[in-house]
């Protein structure tokens, strides 16, 4: 591999890793704060992609569609938490798994009923459709650079939210001792609703950002969910910092694996996960 190609692949890997982080951050946030393992997280990613595809077809504007889709996802998150998830806080993980698996089927059927089973694509918005020359032979699409920057910005915002704001303080407090937070007069119920809705919105935003780069197909949520679990397990369940590092590692490793040993590439990240767990059974940044 030439040095040039090495750097191109490194950038591919980092860009993929940043997107993975964005998807995984919601999953790990919800698990860390609420102890809920949301298997329907991938479905939210799918919902984001389908919503933005639908609104772009209707309105023609990517920006407007993206904002509208994200807001709808936030509302959907509040609805799901209030109607379904809230009943599960005092139940065990098995019940949570059953409910959220059920939600996967519901969302897949809804997708099939509302939008059909054809594969769809979203055009890259006009302003971001160019490419910057990269090496002699290839160029790098502007949209991918933009997508990576958005992911970084959201990661920074999430970090700021959790470590510097009052809401973040409550989230951290809720993570470590729920009863104590309640006893201090904080409305933990609405805090949980907010956290869950943010988690859903993060997944949907990833779907929105990924839409112009990927194909929008039935089952897209499940495929991303599994990779997300690898990221979260490698990073340490519930740790946002862990998800960030884990996502970049998984992104870079799977990109290089795909080039160097294509037939085995799907296996490599799982092998990597096993190796990490052998050394650190709780993940890299476990609490």
């Amino acid at each position: 591999m030439s040095t040039e190609l090495f750097f191109v692949q490194l950038i591919n890997g980092l860009q993929y890793g940043l997107l993975l982080f964005l998807i995984a951050s919601g999953l790990t946030l919800v698990f860390g704060v609420m102890g809920i393992l949301n298997l329907a997280h991938g479905s939210m990613y799918m919902v984001g992609a389908y919503l933005v595809w639908y609104f772009v077809a209707v309105t023609g504007s990517f920006t407007a569609s993206a904002i509208l889709s994200a807001v709808i996802a936030l509302g959907l998150g509040i609805l799901i938490e209030r109607v379904l998830i809230q009943r599960l806080y005092n139940r065990n993980h098995l019940d949570q798994v059953l409910l959220t698996i059920g939600m996967i089927f519901v969302f897949n059927s809804l997708q099939s009923i509302l939008w059909g089973n054809d594969p769809y694509g979203v055009a890259v918005p006009e302003a971001l459709s160019g490419a910057v020359p990269f090496t002699d032979n290839s160029s790098y699409p502007v949209y991918r650079i933009f997508a990576a920057l958005i992911c970084v910005a959201i990661a920074a915002a999430l970090y700021f939210l959790v470590s510097r704001t009052r809401l973040g303080m409550l989230i951290r407090a809720g993570e470590s001792n729920r009863e104590m937070v309640e006893a201090l007069g904080v409305n933990i119920k609405s805090l949980y609703t907010i956290v869950f809705a943010i988690g859903v919105m993060l997944a949907a935003i990833s779907g929105i950002i990924a839409a112009p780069m990927r194909s929008i197909v039935p089952g897209m949520g499940e495929s991303v969910l599994i990779t997300c679990f690898v990221v979260v397990v490698v990073g340490g369940m519930g740790s946002i910092k862990g998800a960030f590092v884990g996502a970049l590692l998984v992104g870079v490793i799977s990109t290089f694996a795909a080039v160097l040993m294509p037939t085995m590439s799907n296996m490599i990240i799982y092998i990597f996960m096993i190796l990490v767990l052998l050394v650190k059974p709780q993940g890299l940044f476990a609490k």
């Binding site: 190609l5 993929y16 090496t135 032979n137 990109t255 795909a258």
Partner: peptide, 9 residues
């Protein structure tokens, strides 16, 4: 993505 980069190279 990585294969398309490989093709370009």
């Amino acid at each position: 993505q990585s294969h398309v980069s490989d093709i370009a190279d």
